[in-house]
Measured scan of single mutants.
Amino acid sequence: PREAYIVTIEKGKPGQTVTWYQLRADHPKPDSLISEHPTAQEAMDAKKRYED
């Protein structure tokens, strides 16, 4: 089974940042970016789909 994890990042100019959620996995390479999402819920949904 595949495993993934969610990383929170800040995008934008200082003082005007927006939080994004990255879905990452250690396949095919360590810390590979799988997808980016504007909400934590979307990231969790993507994580479930990826791991299923």
Rank of each mutant, 00 (worst) to 15 (best):
P1E: 11
P1C: 13
P1G: 13
P1H: 14
P1R: 15
P1M: 13
R2D: 06
R2W: 13
R2E: 06
E3H: 15
E3I: 15
E3F: 15
A4C: 15
A4F: 14
A4K: 01
Y5K: 06
Y5D: 01
Y5N: 03
I6C: 02
I6Y: 01
I6S: 00
I6F: 03
V7E: 04
V7N: 04
T8P: 14
T8H: 06
T8L: 12
T8R: 12
T8N: 06
I9Q: 04
I9G: 02
I9L: 07
I9Y: 07
E10A: 09
E10N: 09
E10C: 14
E10H: 11
E10F: 09
K11S: 05
K11D: 03
K11I: 08
K11N: 04
G12A: 04
K13A: 13
K13C: 12
K13I: 14
P14G: 09
P14W: 07
G15F: 06
G15T: 05
G15W: 05
Q16F: 14
Q16N: 13
Q16C: 15
T17R: 10
T17I: 11
V18A: 08
V18K: 14
V18T: 13
T19V: 12
T19E: 07
T19A: 06
Y21A: 00
Y21N: 00
Y21F: 09
Q22D: 01
Q22I: 04
Q22Y: 03
L23D: 01
L23H: 00
L23N: 01
L23Y: 01
R24W: 15
R24C: 12
R24K: 14
R24L: 09
R24G: 01
A25G: 08
A25Y: 04
A25K: 08
A25R: 11
A25P: 00
D26S: 14
D26A: 14
D26M: 12
H27V: 13
H27S: 11
H27R: 09
H27Y: 15
H27C: 12
H27N: 09
P28Y: 07
K29G: 09
K29L: 14
K29H: 14
P30E: 08
P30Q: 09
P30R: 10
P30M: 09
P30H: 09
P30C: 11
P30G: 09
P30D: 06
D31V: 04
D31K: 10
S32A: 07
S32H: 15
S32F: 12
S32P: 02
S32I: 11
L33E: 02
I34G: 00
I34N: 01
I34Y: 02
S35Y: 01
S35A: 02
S35R: 00
S35V: 01
S35F: 01
S35H: 01
H37C: 02
H37L: 02
H37D: 00
H37G: 00
P38L: 12
P38S: 10
T39H: 04
T39C: 05
T39A: 03
T39P: 00
A40S: 09
A40M: 15
A40Y: 15
E42I: 04
E42T: 04
M44E: 14
M44F: 12
M44D: 07
D45L: 13
A46D: 02
A46Q: 03
A46F: 04
A46C: 03
A46R: 02
K47G: 02
K47A: 06
K47M: 10
K48M: 11
K48D: 07
R49S: 09
R49W: 11
R49D: 08
R49L: 10
R49K: 12
Y50M: 05
Y50V: 04
E51P: 03
E51Q: 12
E51W: 06
E51C: 07
E51T: 08
D52V: 11
D52E: 15
D52S: 15
